[in-house]
């Protein structure tokens, strides 16, 4: 199945938002200690398959019933990730996949090579944040 043009990442809380209304690069930090044994580190996203994906993501809850993304979501074009991944300093370190979950048909992952250095991971996170197309904040 081909992937849609955009993916969505939830904003867990307001500490990821800056005064200027943008998101901090740390919204896209990868956990460098969580190599999944195939050479990749994953970061959860939802693929924007249809118009209901954003609302679905906004309503996702943690196991304790609390809203997972209290502040909102961001929308990122997939082709911006492909462009980022083609830059000489980043080439081949990024990828993405669809990995549906039982309770989430939209689920996928951004993937980062586990050999990536911490400075490069943070550069890449900033690059993804720079590519954010829309920020949708939850109504107060």
């Amino acid at each position: 199945m081909s992937l849609p043009s955009n993916f969505i990442r939830g904003i867990p809380n307001a500490t990821f938002l800056n005064e200027g209304g943008s998101v901090g690069a740390h919204l896209f930090y990868f956990d460098l200690t969580s190599d999944r044994d195939d050479g990749w580190i994953e970061q959860s996203i939802n693929w924007e398959d249809d118009d209901s994906t954003i609302e679905f993501t906004m309503q996702q809850r943690k196991s304790d019933g609390e809203l997972q993304f209290k502040t909102g979501v961001v929308v990122v074009p997939k082709d911006e990730i492909e462009k980022l991944n083609s830059r000489p300093t980043i080439k081949g370190l990024l990828s993405f996949e669809r990995r549906e979950l039982i309770d989430n048909p939209y689920h996928g992952n951004l993937l980062l090579r586990s050999i990536t250095s911490r400075p490069t991971m943070k550069l890449i996170a900033a690059g993804i944040a720079l590519a954010v197309e829309r920020i949708i904040q939850r109504a107060e």
Partner: peptide, 29 residues
């Protein structure tokens, strides 16, 4: 742009200058 600062779950502190066309930052680990 205003310099933004964030404390991050990985224990670092992120300082960023953010514009529509660039991001410049420092991560204090």
């Amino acid at each position: 742009p205003r310099l933004s600062a964030s404390t991050v779950d990985d224990g670092s502190i992120l300082f960023e200058w953010i514009s529509a066309d660039y991001r410049i930052g420092f991560s204090i680990e």
